[in-house]
Design a protein around this nucleic acid. Structure first.
Lengths: 326, 326
DNA sequence: GCGTACAACTTATGCGCAAAAGTAACTGTG
DNA sequence: CACAGTTACTTTTGCGCATAAGTTGTACGC
């Protein structure tokens, strides 16, 4: 029984091994409870069967990243897909792109999924790393030359939401976010577009800035709540912020949707469990993870994929918007 | 420049290499942007520098597991600790223990952290896997012979919470959970003990069963809410269930804490953002992950560790309990 | 000035695997 | 019956690393 014969049996190379010996080998493998050594296989094949999932966060959002149910659902989707294709997932959470890079090359990771990475960082990575990369939720035309993006039609989703608010009679609507880049910018743009199409003006003061860091968040919420009476509705860039805002409003005796309407974006458990239940834009986070992983897997097997995949959103009308049409 | 010399420089084996050649080698390494091939190192050393984090869920709780902010925080804690010690994390989410086992042995994972595994499964794993295992939140005396457990003083936490409820005048208190095993049992026991110490009776009908599966959860909530008037307070086994319950109560016009008091356990963002803010038992989930990883790392470097580590809990009194002392 | 000790290297070996190259026995064909 | 082709194997090689074993040169003591 030579190693090659055994190897052939393991890899199911029929025609090379007689049925007789095949059975013998299989029995033997079972008897000794054989498990292949992946390190050795990797060394010989120069492939690792590992997909790296790198989550990166701006330092000030790191805490939120980890807390967000979004992340665990995403991880779950990726892991499931990858595993059923015989790959393994190495998870990497970091604030430091270089560290991620080093990690990826030491392990000779076969493919990369990046999330939360700034667009230029993604490009930087792709320049060094010569294997397939799929990014989630990036917004960089430049980047699309280097990697595939799996995202959402954020602009359209925000457009629909803003249009809905306007249809309910809202004219003074604020937009709440912590930055104006990437996804947040796309959502803001959709919002602005809806205003414009309805002949409403967007003033820069209608942008309410929330600070993600725990030391600053209270102060920023205080400022925002003080200005609440200026608006009839606040459109938040995420459910997390919508619910955070509603808690702050509630603490100050401002009722939702009685005094002011609030909407979110994402549709996660936070808004679903809130009462009144949050009106929001639904996205299928698990599908995002699954799609990203699937796309990467396809690329690994040499199948061409579009370099931009946009998943649809869906308006979910619940109870945080008041109809104020006279 | 021989491989050994280079290897020695990389591993900082001073005294074996002259300062001169050391510098030369280092310059060279930088120039060619050398990255070690971990597969080769693993093969040579028979160690992988990988820590496996296996999350297992009963089929009916799988969805919840993934959604729960608990999980991502735990993962974050483990990942951070492991990485700063030069290890890597391979994440494994599955309903199937055998699959986890196969994975672990193919990769020759150096150590294992198990979460959400039933006690007997943990033991089964430890019988095959001859390397260090740290479990999180198991409750099996038998298991402690095989692995280290990092957990909480659940019983004490629940005892304090129940005592607090009693001090606020509550005598008819229900306990809500989806099962009576492991952690949930410990919390239930703490609850029962507090009742007993205060000369209150626990009837088996005071246990309210919630069903975790999304198809059944509504029905079980309906039953529970119908019985709400029997109690002045409901102690929930987790914040997730407490908030879920409060949403259901709110939908039926039952006010918290006006009509009934509700408390949770865990202290996660769900309860913190809820209004009224949830009175609960705090646990430091990140610390749990960090402690588990630290303990495993210690064991890997041959340091003895206690086989049972219990992290403290802390009562967090917020706004969901009414003082009903006459 | 011979042996010992040690510093600073180099060479050789094996980890477990996949695949290339080699071998031996058997089969069919002209 | 000789030779090509095929089947069912075995032997060999090399992936990149750490380390054991071997080599060389130099300093020092007596």
């Amino acid at each position: 029984m030579s190693t090659t014969t055994v190897s052939n049996v393991i890899h199911g190379k029929a025609g090379e091994v007689s049925e007789d010996t095949k059975k013998k080998v299989e029995e033997f493998l079972k008897k000794v409870d054989y498990v292949p050594n992946i390190s050795a296989r990797n060394l010989a094949q120069n492939e690792s069967k590992i997909i790296g999932l790198a989550l990166k966060a701006r330092a000030d959002k790191y805490e939120n990243l980890i807390m967000d149910p979004f992340v665990s659902v995403l991880i779950g989707g990726v892991e499931e897909t990858i595993r059923s294709a015989g790959y393994f997932m190495m998870l990497y959470i970091s604030k430091d792109t270089d560290e991620i890079m080093r990690h990826v090359s030491t392990w000779n990771v076969d493919g990369l999924i990046l999330f939360g990475m700034l667009d230029d960082d993604g490009i930087r990575v792709s320049e060094k790393y010569k294997k397939p990369i799929v990014c989630i939720d990036t917004y960089s035309l430049e980047g699309l030359k280097h990697f595939t993006n799996v995202g959402l039609d954020d602009e359209q989703g925000a457009y629909e939401m803003a249009s809905y608010l306007i249809s309910q009679g809202h004219k003074r609507i604020a937009f709440l976010s912590d930055n104006t880049k990437g996804v947040d910018l796309a959502r803001l743009n959709g919002f602005k577009k809806a205003l414009k199409d309805n002949k409403l003006k967007f003033k820069s003061t209608d942008f309410l800035q929330i600070r993600p860091r725990s030391e600053e968040i209270e102060e920023s919420l205080e400022k925002i709540c003080q200005r609440a009476s200026e608006f009839t509705a606040i459109m938040c860039v995420s459910d997390l912020y919508a619910v955070t805002l509603m808690s702050a409003l509630s603490d100050r005796g401002i009722s939702v949707p009685g005094d002011i309407s609030v909407v979110g974006f994402d549709d996660n458990m936070l808004g679903q469990l809130h009462r009144p239940a949050l009106t929001t834009v639904h996205q299928d986070v698990k599908a995002k993870g699954v799609t990203a992983a699937d796309t990467l897997l396809k690329q690994l097997s040499g199948v061409k994929t579009p370099n931009q995949i946009k998943l649809p959103t869906r308006l979910v009308i619940r109870d945080t918007v008041k109809n104020i049409n006279s």
